[in-house]
Design a protein around this nucleic acid. Structure first.
Length: 802
DNA sequence: TAGTTTTAAGTTTTT
DNA sequence: CTTAAAACTA
C-alpha cells in the first residue's frame, strides 16, 4: 500500500525516500548519499522523506534534524514538508550556523562562553584584529582575518601543525592565538566558532554528545557539496551509533570553495561514513536536453568529479545560442532586444528572463540599458543592507547594550558623532577594563565591562572627553530604559522557524508554539510608518523592540550624524535606519528580544525583495551566477563569457574546476532557452580592453551551440556567419589592438578594432612629431589615419588623427 | 583631532 | 569609472 504522496515520485526518488538505513540481516545503520543532479527534484525528495519518516516510520518529528546552508532553503523545506504532514513543523530545520548558535547558547558555558554572546561578522573580525595589529595596513589585516576564518572552516586551531596549509606566514599562529584570546575575553563568537566550538564541546564532553545522540535519530543535510571540514566534523560528532544520516548534494554544483567548502566531503562520503549507500537522481525535470548537454560538456572537463549523466525528461528543445558581440554596450542591447522581442510576441513575460553575470559590477550596463528602454528589472543580491555604515553603527549600539565587554562595538560608536573622546580616551577606558587580568572563563565579570571601566576613570578624564563619554553612556541608558525587565531564563534557546514572509513561529523546548504575525504586528501600531525618503524629522517608533532601537539611534546622535553628514544620502540613510527599527518591532522589548533580534540579523541577511511595482509581466532578474543556485528561469542569458571574466584569468587547477562548476550551475538554471554572450572588448576600470572568448566556449560541445556574430581575431573560421555589414560611416574616436604579435610597435598588417568601424588592418606607418601615425583600412571600406596616443601592457590605444 | 586631498586598487560570499 | 584607504593639512 503506497501512500499517495509517494506516487508522484520516480523510482529513484522513491527509493531515496524509502531508504531507512536499516538493512536485512544487519544491525548497522547505513548512511545515505543522494547524488541529486540539477533539477532532479531533490527538495521534493527531502521533504517527502521527512514526512514519510514521521507518518510511516513513527519517527518523532522532534528527533529529526535537517540542516541547510541558507535560511531560505530552511524555510522552503519546512513549508513543503508541512504540506504533506503538519507534524514536520516540529522537526528542527535550521542552517548549520543557526544550529551552532542554538547549541552554543545552551552549551557554550562548557567552553567558557556565556549565553549572551553576539555573533561577529567578517567585518567585525577584521575590526577586532586591527585592534591587535594596529600598525599593519588594512589590506594585510583583512588577509589575516580571512586566513583565520578559513582555518576555522578547516577545523584548525592555532596550535594545529596543519595550520601552515592555510597560511605559512611565521607570525600567523601568533595572530590567530591573540585573536582567539581577545574574542574569548570579549565573550563573543565569529561565524567559524558557531561550527568549530560545538564540535569541541561534543568531543570533550561525552555526556553532552550522548544527549544529542539521544535527541536526534535522523540527520538530513542539504547541499552537502558546500559543507566545509568543520561542518563534516560536526556531523560526525552528532551521529551516534543509532543515528541515521542522509546527505543530499551534487558535486558538480560545489561553488563555495573560496569560503572553505570542501568538495571532497561529498566525493569521499562513502569512505568517511562506513556502509553508505548511494542513490543517483539523474532525471532532470527542468531543462531541454541541449541545455543539459551543453552544461555537461563543459563540466565534464573536470577531473575531480563523481560523474553522472543527466537525462532530460522534457526532451529536445531549442539549441542554446552563443552571441559574439563587439562590446558590453552591444551586449546590453542584445539582451534588451531579445527580451523585448519575446515579450512583444507574447512568447514570454519579463519574469521568464534572467541575466546572469560573474561579478556584480557587470550589472550596471544592463541596468542603464533597461532603464532607458523601460524594461522592468530587479537586481538580486547586491543590496548589502547590513553592511551599510549607518546600520552597522546602530547594530554596534545594540550589541554593546547586550554585551558591555564588546570593545569592537564600543570603539565604533563611542565617538560617533565626534564628542571629543578620541583614541587616547578610548584606549584609556579599554586599558582600565582589561585591568591586566585575564577574565575567569564562564562568568561575565565586571572587570571586563567597559561601562564600569569608563565610570571608574571618568573623574580623571579631561572635561571635554568626560562630557563626551558621559553623553554616550547616557544615550545607552536611554535605550536600556525602553526594555522591560523579565525573568532571565525565558528566551535564548527558542527554536525559531520562519515559515513565510508574514508568519513567524517560535516553539520552545516543550513545543509550546507561539505565532507572530508580522502584518498584524505592523498594523497594530495604528500608525502609517514613514517609508524611505520621508521628510519627517526623527524616526517613528513602532511597537515591541522598535522604540528601544529608535531611542538609541536618536539619543546617541547616530541618526543626526547620518542625516546631516551628507545631504544626498542622508534621507536614504535615515530611511535605512527606520527600516531597521521597523524590523525590530516583531521582537519583544526585552534583553532576550534584543539578543534574538541581533542573532536573527547576523544569521539571516537575506532581504525580501520589494516587488511592489511589479506588473503582470513581472521583472527581469539581474543576478550573479553564484546567487542563482537553487533557482530556475524559463530563459537565461549568461553574459561576459570571456577569458579573464569567466573564468577569471588567475584561476588554475582546482579553482578553474570550480569556475567550470559555476558555469554548469548557471547554464542548468535555464528551463527553455539559454543564451551566452561574449564580447570582443570590454571597458574595465575606465579603460577598454580587448577580450578573448572564454576557455569554456572552446570546451563546449558545438553540436548543441548555435553561434551568431563575429568572434574576435584568432577565433574565426568555424564557419560562422558574418555580421559586419551596416555600420555607419565617419571615423571618430579611437582604435585598439591586442598586443600579441610584437612588442607594441606597429607593423603593416596589424589588425585593430574600432567602436564604430569594426575590424581593420594597418596599411601604412609613418613617424610624426607626436609619435607614430598609422593608416587603417576598415572592413567597412573606410580608410583613415590615427595618431598613437599611448601604450601600456596588453593593448595599444590609438587616437584619431584629426 | 577632524576633515580634506591624493593615491591605489578593483571576485564570487548562502552564514 | 568608482570606491576605499593612506597621507596630508588646518
Amino acid at each position: 500500500m503506497i501512500p499517495s504522496y509517494l506516487e508522484a515520485l520516480n523510482p529513484e526518488q522513491r527509493q531515496a525516500v524509502l531508504h531507512t538505513g536499516k538493512a536485512a540481516g544487519d544491525a548497522l545503520m547505513h548512511p545515505l548519499l543522494i547524488l541529486a543532479g540539477a533539477g532532479s527534484g531533490k527538495t521534493r525528495v527531502i521533504t517527502t522523506k521527512i514526512a514519510w519518516l514521521i507518518r510511516e516510520q513513527g519517527v518523532d518529528p522532534r528527533s529529526i534534524l535537517a540542516v541547510t546552508f541558507t535560511n531560505k532553503a530552511a524555510r522552503e523545506m519546512a513549508e513543503r514538508a508541512r504540506i504533506i504532514d503538519d507534524r514536520a513543523g516540529f522537526a528542527m530545520l535550521r542552517t548549520f550556523h543557526s544550529f551552532g548558535a542554538w547549541f552554543l547558547r545552551r552549551n557554550g558555558n562548557l567552553e567558557g562562553l556565556g549565553s549572551n554572546f553576539i555573533i561577529y561578522d567578517d567585518d567585525d573580525s577584521v575590526a577586532l584584529l586591527s585592534t591587535l595589529l594596529e600598525d599593519l595596513p588594512k589590506a594585510e589585516v583583512k588577509q589575516i582575518a580571512h586566513a583565520i576564518a578559513r582555518a576555522k572552516d578547516y577545523f584548525l586551531s592555532p596550535e594545529d601543525p596543519e595550520l601552515d596549509l592555510i597560511d605559512f606566514h611565521p607570525e600567523f599562529r601568533r595572530y590567530y592565538t591573540q585573536y582567539e584570546d581577545k574574542l574569548a575575553r570579549i565573550g563573543n563568537v565569529d561565524f567559524g566558532d558557531l561550527i568549530k566550538k560545538p564540535v569541541e564541546i561534543l568531543r570533550s564532553n561525552p555526556e553532552v554528545a550522548r544527549r544529542f545522540h539521544d535527541r536526534f535519530s535522523v540527520i538530513l543535510v542539504d547541499e552537502y557539496q558546500d559543507s566545509n571540514i568543520a561542518q563534516f566534523e560536526l556531523l560526525k560528532e552528532l551521529c551516534g551509533p543509532a543515528t541515521y544520516i542522509c546527505v543530499v548534494g551534487d558535486d558538480d554544483q560545489s561553488i563555495y570553495r573560496f569560503r572553505g567548502a570542501e568538495v571532497r566531503n561529498i566525493l569521499e562520503f562513502p569512505d568517511r561514513f562506513a556502509g553508505a549507500d548511494i542513490i543517483r537522481l539523474e532525471r532532470n525535470y527542468r531543462s531541454f536536453s541541449p541545455i543539459l548537454d551543453l552544461a555537461s560538456s563543459v563540466v565534464d572537463k573536470n577531473e575531480g568529479r563523481l560523474g553522472k549523466t543527466l537525462v532530460a525528461h522534457r526532451g529536445v528543445g531549442k539549441t542554446p545560442t552563443l552571441a559574439f558581440l563587439p562590446d558590453q554596450d552591444a551586449e546590453a542591447e542584445f539582451c534588451a532586444e531579445l527580451i523585448e522581442k519575446s515579450v512583444h510576441k507574447k512568447a514570454a513575460v519579463y519574469s521568464d528572463w534572467a541575466i546572469l553575470y560573474r561579478t556584480n559590477a557587470q550589472s550596471l550596463g544592463f541596468e542603464t540599458e533597461f532603464l532607458r528602454r523601460r524594461i522592468p528589472y530587479r537586481v538580486v543580491g547586491s543590496l548589502k543592507f547590513y553592511e551599510r555604515e549607518e546600520i552597522k553603527d546602530a547594530l554596534a549600539l545594540l550589541s554593546f547594550l547586550v554585551n558591555p565587554r564588546d570593545e569592537i562595538a564600543f570603539r565604533r560608536v563611542v565617538n560617533k558623532p565626534a564628542r571629543g573622546a578620541g583614541t587616547a580616551t578610548v584606549d584609556r577606558i579599554v586599558g582600565e577594563a582589561a585591568g591586566g587580568d585575564p577574565i575567569p572563563s564562564g562568568n561575565p565579570v565586571p572587570s571586563g565591562d567597559l561601562a564600569e571601566a569608563a565610570r571608574r576613570i571618568m573623574p580623571a578624564l579631561p572635561s571635554k572627553a568626560r562630557a563626551g563619554v558621559s553623553a554616550f553612556f547616557k544615550a545607552l541608558e536611554g535605550g536600556l530604559s525602553m526594555l522591560t525587565p523579565e525573568p532571565p531564563e525565558s528566551a535564548g534557546d527558542n527554536n525559531i522557524l520562519i515559515f513565510n514572509r508574514n508568519t513567524v513561529e517560535a516553539s520552545d523546548e516543550n513545543n509550546n508554539i507561539l505565532y507572530f504575525n508580522k502584518k498584524t504586528a505592523e498594523a497594530a501600531d495604528g500608525k502609517k510608518r514613514p517609508r524611505k525618503g520621508s521628510k519627517r524629522e526623527g524616526l517613528s517608533a513602532g511597537e515591541g523592540l522598535s522604540p528601544c532601537v529608535v531611542r538609541l539611534i536618536d539619543d546617541s546622535g547616530i541618526g543626526e550624524y547620518h542625516r546631516t553628514h551628507d545631504d544626498i544620502t542622508g534621507f536614504q540613510r535615515i530611511g535605512n535606519l527606520q527600516e531597521l527599527a521597523n524590523a525590530a518591532s516583531i521582537y519583544p522589548a526585552t534583553r532576550a528580544g534584543l539578543l534574538e533580534f541581533l542573532e536573527h540579523i547576523e544569521l539571516d541577511r537575506s532581504i525580501e525583495q520589494e516587488t511592489g511595482d511589479e506588473g503582470e509581466k513581472g521583472t527581469v532578474t539581474l543576478i550573479t551566477v553564484h546567487n542563482t543556485k537553487g533557482l530556475e528561469f524559463r530563459r537565461v542569458i549568461m553574459t561576459g563569457i570571456e577569458q579573464g571574466i569567466f573564468p577569471r584569468d588567475d584561476k588554475l587547477g582546482d579553482d578553474l574546476e570550480e569556475e567550470r562548476r559555476l558555469f554548469y550551475v548557471g547554464a542548468t538554471r535555464a528551463m527553455d532557452e539559454l543564451y551566452l554572450t561574449s564580447c570582443a572588448m570590454r571597458r574595465m576600470f575606465g579603460r577598454t580592453m580587448p577580450m578573448k572568448p572564454s576557455l569554456f566556449i572552446g570546451e563546449a560541445d558545438k553540436n548543441v551551440l548555435r553561434i551568431i556574430g563575429k568572434p574576435p581575431f584568432g577565433f574565426e573560421g568555424r564557419g560562422l556567419p558574418d555580421q559586419s555589414s551596416g555600420r555607419r560611416p565617419g571615423v571618430q574616436g579611437s582604435v585598439i589592438k591586442p598586443v600579441s604579435s610584437s612588442d607594441g610597435r606597429w607593423k603593416v598588417g596589424d589588425r585593430v578594432f574600432h567602436d564604430d568601424q569594426g575590424y581593420g588592418a594597418v596599411t601604412e606607418i609613418r613617424e610624426s612629431d607626436e609619435g607614430p601615425v598609422i593608416r587603417v583600412k576598415f572592413e567597412t571600406g573606410k580608410d583613415t589615419r590615427f595618431l598613437s596616443l599611448h601604450q601600456s601592457s596588453g593593448y595599444t590605444k590609438i587616437g584619431n588623427d584629426d
